Amino acid sequence: MKIDPFVIAIALSITLAYFFPQLGLGESPVPLDTIASIGISLIFFFYGLKLSSEAIKSGLKNWKLHIVVQASTFLLFPLLVVVFYPFVKGTSHEMLWLSILFMAALPSTVSSSVVMVSLAKGNVSAAIFNASISGLIGIAITPLWMSSFIQETSIEYDFTAIYMQLIIEILMPLILGLLLRRFLGELARKNSRKLSLFDKSIILIIIYKSFVHSFEEKVFSELKFIDLILLFVLVVSIFFFVYFIIGWIVQKLNFNREDQITAQFCGTKKSLVHGTVFSEALFGQTNIMGLMLLPLMLFHAFQILIISIFATRKGANVE
């Protein structure tokens, strides 16, 4: 299997942040914070333009599948992490645990979920519906999951300001995109590849400046190589646990093959786009943003690799 070029680009961004942090520092002549803020708003504006009303209308009929996917995304994932909170509370691992919870509380991906479901010959229209609605739900649910536990840490957060930032930078552009979809939706869909490149560019900028600040404040100084290995093992274990739990549930519910694929592929994904955007709102005023993104980036790389393998095999079995 080929390595996703975007995963390589993420690794390069982190490397640049370590060796060439000048552009991400406060005295930099390049206003990366402003660029990232405007870019985030444009990402969700374009997201609103590309949202498929037809897929949403047809998807409403398959409510059992949608409940399984969204419950997995916003309940099963976070609860698997929350149960370990009593063991890490007040320890040196609490912040790392918080970063895993952040990953677990995020919405599902959009483009990769649809592509992988299509490759595996699953229910594509249901995948589009679930991926789209997951992003909308996440705007409200992800910060709610995080709020209770962030308040337990020693870092101060102003949640009024955080929700205002989410409304201004995400919700309002998204609504504007939905309102203008009738006029600009077709143009956005025709240029979806270019818009995807724009999305990824903004994500790379956010990752770069996040790791610049984290390296500058030596956030990773106490993180040993064995911790990274353990972190990777944890996120991989969470993925497989959720994947097989969903598989067991959909068999009990007698889902057909196409819906089983959609449930397992969409219900196990986590969105790097939403992760970088939400981390900007939740942790942008702190020096731990790079740490908060670390489990998500490991999970992102792994989910693309393993779901690509699964999708190719399932698709080949049908042909």
Rank of each mutant, 00 (worst) to 15 (best):
F278P: 01
S132G: 09
Q165M: 11
Q165L: 12
I170A: 03
K194C: 15
A316K: 13
K89W: 14
I205Y: 05
L184K: 05
S214W: 09
W145L: 06
I170W: 04
K2V: 14
W63R: 10
P295C: 05
P31M: 08
S118D: 13
R182G: 12
S271P: 00
S132N: 05
N317T: 12
R257P: 06
V250K: 02
G275D: 01
L171W: 06
I309H: 10
L65P: 04
Y18Q: 14
L98I: 05
T268K: 03
F220K: 04
L98V: 10
P295M: 05
Q303A: 05
D4M: 05
K314Q: 13
L178Q: 10
P5R: 10
I304N: 01
P31R: 04
S154W: 13
F220D: 07
H213I: 11
V250S: 02
V124E: 03
V83L: 07
H93W: 14
V219L: 08
F19W: 14
S99F: 05
F149K: 00
S58A: 15
F20M: 12
S154K: 14
F159C: 10
N62G: 10
Y208G: 02
R313H: 14
V30E: 12
M289Q: 08
N317K: 13
I38M: 08
Y243T: 09
S201T: 13
A104R: 01
G247C: 11
I246P: 03
V110R: 01
V236C: 08
S210A: 10
F278I: 08
G26D: 12
S154C: 14
T160N: 15
F129R: 02
S72D: 04
L79Q: 07
G290W: 03
I307Y: 00
I155A: 15
D227Q: 10
R257W: 09
K269H: 13
I56W: 00
M95K: 07
E258G: 06
I249Y: 05
A105N: 04
R193T: 12
N62V: 13
P5K: 06
